[in-house]
Simulated assay, not measured.
Amino acid sequence: MHIQDYQKAILQNKIDHQFNTTNIEKEFLALYGEVAEAFDAYRKMESVGEELADVAIYLFGIAELLQIDLEREIQTKMKINASRRYVANGNGYATRVDDAENDEEKR
C-alpha cells in the first residue's frame, strides 16, 4: 500500500465510525495528544510502536481531509532536505548553514 491508500482508508474508517471529519483544528489537537502519548510510552518503554502508529493515523487522516498527497510532499521535502547543509553545534542538534548565512545577510 502507498501512503495515499492509507490516507483514504483512514478517512473511510473515520466516516464509518462517525468520527470527526470536519474540524481540522480538533484533528491537529488530537495529533498533538497522540505525539504526547507516544513520548510517554517511549519513556515507559511500552507500546511505542502502537502509539507511533496512532500518530501516523492522525497525520494521514489530516492530510486526506486537507486533500494533500502526503507521499508526494514527503518525497519533495526529502529532496529539499538532502540538498541542505548543516553544521553540528555540539548539543545534539544541527544548524542549517543556509539559515545561518541568511541571518548574517539580514544584519
Results as ranks from 00 to 15, higher is better:
M1A: 07
H2R: 15
H2T: 13
I3T: 06
I3W: 05
Q4E: 15
Q4P: 02
D5R: 13
A9M: 15
I10D: 01
I10T: 03
L11E: 02
L11I: 01
L11D: 04
Q12I: 00
Q12F: 06
Q12A: 05
K14P: 01
K14E: 07
H17R: 09
H17I: 03
H17K: 13
H17T: 09
H17V: 03
Q18G: 12
F19S: 08
N20I: 11
N20W: 00
T22Q: 08
T22R: 13
N23K: 07
I24R: 08
K26H: 05
E27D: 11
E27Q: 10
F28E: 08
F28S: 01
F28D: 10
A30L: 12
L31K: 06
L31R: 09
L31H: 03
Y32G: 08
G33H: 00
G33F: 00
G33E: 11
E34C: 13
V35S: 10
V35I: 14
V35P: 04
A36W: 05
A36D: 13
E37Y: 13
A38Y: 02
A38M: 11
F39T: 14
D40F: 15
A41Y: 01
A41H: 02
A41R: 12
Y42Q: 13
Y42K: 15
R43E: 02
K44G: 04
E46L: 11
E46D: 14
S47A: 11
G49F: 09
G49E: 03
E51Y: 15
E51K: 12
L52E: 00
L52I: 12
L52Q: 00
A53S: 09
A53E: 00
D54C: 10
V55N: 03
V55Y: 01
A56G: 03
A56H: 04
Y58T: 06
Y58N: 14
Y58A: 09
Y58S: 11
L59H: 01
G61V: 04
I62N: 03
E64F: 09
L65W: 12
L65G: 00
L66V: 05
Q67F: 10
I68E: 05
I68G: 04
I68N: 00
D69A: 02
D69Q: 05
R72G: 08
E73D: 01
E73L: 06
I74T: 02
I74K: 00
I74F: 04
I74V: 10
T76D: 02
K77C: 05
M78Y: 06
M78L: 15
I80C: 05
I80G: 09
N81I: 09
A82L: 08
S83W: 00
S83R: 14
R84N: 06
R85S: 05
V87W: 09
V87Y: 10
A88M: 09
A88V: 11
A88E: 12
N89W: 15
N91W: 08
G92W: 05
G92E: 03
Y93V: 08
A94R: 07
T95F: 15
T95K: 15
T95P: 14
T95W: 15
R96H: 09
V97I: 14
V97E: 01
V97R: 00
V97A: 06
D98F: 03
D98M: 07
D98T: 11
D99K: 07
A100H: 02
E101V: 08
E101H: 06
N102M: 12
N102L: 12
N102Q: 08
D103F: 15
D103M: 08
E104P: 03
E104S: 11
E104R: 14
E105Q: 06
E105T: 14
E105C: 11
K106V: 13
K106A: 15
R107C: 05
